[in-house]
């Protein structure tokens, strides 16, 4: 099957490892993965800031670029829900575009959902660690991602999942929210970081880089010794990869 991989802007610029790991998992499952160079971003930032015209022109580009593939797969719940849930909303008054948006919506998947629900991959790895999983909001509430990452992670031998207090509560990232209302965002992510600390886990995993940057950045500032990874990085093996937010 021919897969168009949607990189997302944050992964493209700040954490290429997530894309590399995703593609490795897809290729291991015999997928034909393409990364169209005509893609840019999903338009979420414009959409959430009320700029619908810009959102539409970017959405049109995404639809054009990814229409030829059997599937669109992205390593982020929030970008994917923009494409899957909000594109059809954007074009609700343009019949032709709406049809195309709906078609793309149907074949668009978040990476973990795709690996688990469509490919049903088996993970044959051993990784002795205790991890805790943060449910990022868009993925959880707009796409229903909850069991898939946990199912996949639990296949890793010697890996223990320990749940934090309220894993479903927002980390305070919220896209531009965290820079528009930095104090409130900080307060929210501080609570999240403390909840993570209290699990005693070595590793925090999640499915959205925005949240992971936010949490890892805050934990680092608070001297909480936790390593943050995207779920796919753990599934693909992270032997040669530094945690998010750490440099050599």
């Amino acid at each position: 099957m021919k897969i168009g991989f949607f990189v997302t802007c944050l992964v493209d610029t700040l954490r290429p490892e997530i894309a590399i790991a995703s593609i490795k998992l897809l290729e291991d499952a015999n997928c034909d993965v393409h990364v169209p160079s005509q893609q840019t971003c999903c338009a979420q930032i414009a959409f959430n800031n009320g700029d619908l015209e810009t959102s539409k022109s970017i959405a049109r580009n995404v639809i054009n670029v990814f229409e030829p593939f059997d599937y669109l797969v992205a390593p982020s719940g929030s970008c994917l829900s923009m494409i899957k849930v909000h594109y059809p909303e954007l074009f609700k008054d343009e019949a032709k575009m709406l049809e195309r948006a709906n078609n793309l919506s149907e074949k668009s998947y978040e990476i973990l959902t795709f690996l688990n629900d469509i490919l049903d991959i088996k993970i044959k790895k051993r990784f002795p660690a205790t991890v805790t999983y943060h449910d990022s909001c868009s993925g959880l509430r707009e796409l229903g991602i909850k069991s898939q990452p946990r199912k996949l992670l639990s296949q890793i031998k010697d890996l223990k999942i320990t749940e934090m207090h309220e894993p479903e509560v927002c980390c305070g990232f919220g896209g531009t929210f965290c820079v528009k209302y930095p104090e409130i965002s900080t307060n929210i992510v501080t609570e999240k970081s403390n909840d993570i600390k209290n699990t005693g886990a070595d590793i925090l995993v999640g499915g959205d880089l925005g949240c992971l940057l936010n949490i890892s950045g805050r934990c680092s500032r608070m001297n909480i010794p936790i390593k943050c990874f995207h779920t796919v990085e753990l599934l693909a093996g992270i032997d040669d990869c530094l945690p998010i937010g750490k440099t050599k």
Binding site: V7, L14, E17, A19, V35, S37, P182, G217, G245
Partner: peptide
């Protein structure tokens, strides 16, 4: 943008290159 981020959080990109460059 970074100043309000850095007031309470650390930050570091993980690579010198974008994924698109690596893929290319």
């Amino acid at each position: 943008v970074f100043s309000s981020w850095l007031k309470s959080r650390d930050f570091a990109p993980s690579q010198q290159k974008t994924f698109q460059q690596i893929w290319q």
